[in-house]
Design a protein around this nucleic acid. Structure first.
Lengths: 155, 155
DNA sequence: TCGCAATCATTGACATTCTCAACGATCTTC
DNA sequence: GAAGATCGTTGAGAATGTCAATGATTGCGA
């Protein structure tokens, strides 16, 4: 075996039995950090990050979200959404349309180029998700998704 | 009912069925953001955040971690650990001891005051964990911990 | 044993992200 | 129609993340 595993996320066994090992907040934070890092690395070839990928995904849906809705769903400050949409719009992946029902609001809509980009990026994202799922035991995928959804969207 | 639920994490049903709803990376990121925010809020009365609480917890263990070990375990840059330990040390909660086996390294050790603080903070943290678990079924509690451990420390 | 590369904590610089307050335009309510 | 709330935007300042360089030490191989 190699003298030191380069990317290993295995815990130092000395630290693994501290109080943190049973702390779901810490585990969640660490799992999230790993997953986002892997996602960012995988999306980098498309010039995307997890954030911009998420905006693209929501713009690609038929929900026609406003910027405020994006902010709430992604737990971002509205000003961060401005920057995010600016970046995607500058690349022609997304555009702002006036919300017919509220002229203050913008609906973020994906362009054809954006749809192409999203389709390609999605493949990269799926590879990471694959990796994520394979790190888990034989637990059914749907069961895992259920649990994650419950954590991400508590009552 | 109130005109708008203030802290509700419930998804806009229009957005909940986008591609993101099946994206474990996004769900993990959102769950982590919620959990850390709740943890920070709960620890604020002690002048702690999730980060400093984690350092305290590891210093309180009998693992006697070096700063580098803290950095790896918490997925932080070593320079961030410096600042974190500086802050706790300035408050007398933690101290640096020379590692007998490596004079380059510091072992971060909790003080008596730190132990008191940790005991109190732990109660606050447990309240949040309780909240977290209550979002899940009784039976899924252990499954979630296993799941999170596997995600936080993949092979 | 000497010398060289690697490692540890630290500092400093810089980028990214977060948080907040203010603003004009618009909506909602009275 | 006036008053107050909301939407997107801007800008400022704090917090966080990332990286390179440094002095002190360690471990390794010649």
């Amino acid at each position: 075996m190699p003298p030191s595993a380069p990317d290993s996320a295995l815990p130092d066994p000395r630290l693994a039995d501290s109080a943190l090992a049973d702390d779901p907040i810490f585990l969640l934070a660490r799992a999230s950090a790993l997953a986002i890092a892997a996602g960012n690395a995988s999306l980098a070839e498309h010039g995307l990050k997890a954030r911009s990928y998420a905006v693209l995904a929501l713009a690609a849906s038929d929900a026609r979200p406003t910027q405020r809705e994006l902010a709430e769903f992604l737990r971002l400050d509205p000003s961060q959404v401005v920057a995010l949409v600016d970046g995607l719009q500058a690349r022609g992946l997304v555009r702002r349309e006036p919300d017919p029902s509220d002229r203050r609001a913008n609906v973020v809509v994906i362009t054809d180029d954006g749809r192409d980009m999203f389709a390609r990026a999605r493949i990269s994202a799926h590879a990471v998700e694959q990796q994520l799922h394979s790190a888990l035991g034989d637990e059914s995928r749907e069961r895992v998704m259920e649990l994650l959804r419950a954590l991400a969207f508590p009552e």
